[in-house]
Design a protein around this nucleic acid. Structure first.
Lengths: 230, 230
DNA sequence: TATAGTTAGCTGTGATCACAGATGTCAATC
DNA sequence: GATTGACATCTGTGATCACAGCTAACTATA
């Protein structure tokens, strides 16, 4: 034992395919990709300044998670959800994200709760500016900040998988939300406030209820928009 | 409209990397790989009779799902679970697999219920022969037959992800189970029977309770074995 | 004999190339 | 003028190669 335990920071070995994966995942979670959008490996490789190799591994992963679909010899597409799959995913989101909010309420300290509140306020302010991109990104930040507090990496992973499929399914509805400000527009902020309050007060079941109410109402709104004739 | 809608069966395009992935996934779910086992890309490629290419994409996917871990320049290993991660995964398994059993009880018809019962009997008979491999494979068949009945592809996907990490963590305990036949040995078959009965009688909440009891008791047994000095 | 330094042999990662399959354009045909 | 067929082009897939990093065995040193 000659070395005095320098405790050097572990060198993170980040491969290019991980970077590519992370970039595409964030794009999906933030709603920057809409169902039907098409991509190609060569395109993405050029954008990232790499060869096709890392990109295709990222795409393989995402298509395994069904966040993207590979059309043989025809490119990559952000998939549309069937009604069955959409319903299935909503049910699981309600279950898991509700649970995550409950755990967050159990673990959050006052500083963390305050931070969550600020993120919620940021979403609302982006909405007032009708800034679609800002709302989507802010929402993602707000929600995942809560799920981080749940201190369950495995649950976080599952929620990410569900949301990568769910978020693109919802962006069209959010666009309508910002343009038309229908009844759900106000309810949404009320639900966010209830979640923030329950977390601040350490009320797990209240947080779960508020989150689940928010998701159910949002689902209803998304379905309503989707049923409209184009 | 000249073609009379032949409704030709869709040609399933199965790529080599999918086959490699599927093979490794089944090996993990059936408990044929134990924590600490090491693999290499070139080894696997030779076994499969392909180049490294399809194998590495399969490994990339599995390491993304944390079912395998890639040690840079040192091969691939079936990871050990930390206590935190193991606890995390158990909680989610209890939640999701319980829910899946409830849904199976809601949907199963008598023929399907009978089939589930046969699979449970097969596990028990393999156990009487102390056939580790048979128990592991049979158990996997039994459980996934139930989860198929839940008719929720998304839930099935999440359960697979959790089990790929959880099963290797448990094989050592199952080996002890077959060798020593401790108290849990009998309880286990009673729990299986309760699950089968609840599904046959269409009792969702009974099926959930029985499954969750089984998982909790199994977790306790696994932890007990792990705490033993080697 | 014990230890430090070197080297040879592995590993996964990334780049490049060859190829089969799908698509859409465009000309030849009825 | 509508329909069919061929062809050029673009796609993901798989193979092969080059490379840097880590190990472990080996050798030279004290």
């Amino acid at each position: 034992m000659s070395t005095p335990a320098l405790a050097l920071p572990r060198i993170a070995r980040v491969t290019l395919n991980e970077k590519a994966y992370e970039g595409l995942k964030q794009a999906l979670l933030a709603g920057r990709l809409e169902p039907g959008s098409t991509l190609t490996l060569r395109q993405l490789a050029e954008q990232l300044g790499t060869s096709m190799m890392p990109v295709r591994e990222a795409i393989t992963r995402l298509s395994a998670e069904q966040a993207l679909a590979v059309l043989p010899n025809r490119g990559i597409v952000v998939p549309e959800l069937s009604d069955d799959d959409a319903g299935d995913i909503w049910e699981l989101r309600i279950k898991l994200e509700g649970e995550a909010c409950a755990r967050a309420a159990r673990h959050a300290d006052p500083a963390q709760a305050r931070h969550i509140g600020q993120l919620a306020a940021a979403v609302e302010s982006a909405a007032r500016r009708a800034d679609l991109h800002g709302v989507l990104a802010g929402n993602s930040d707000f929600q995942f900040a809560i799920y981080e507090l749940a201190a369950s990496p495995v649950m976080l992973q599952l929620i990410e998988i569900l949301r990568m499929r769910s978020v693109p399914h919802c962006t069209a509805a959010i666009r309508v939300l910002l343009a038309e400000r229908p009844p759900y527009y106000a309810r949404s902020w009320a639900n966010h406030a209830a979640i923030v309050a329950a977390i601040a007060n350490g009320e797990p079941s209240g947080a779960r209820r508020a989150k689940q109410r928010d998701l159910r109402e949002f689902r209803a709104f998304v379905n309503e928009v989707r049923r409209r004739p184009r």
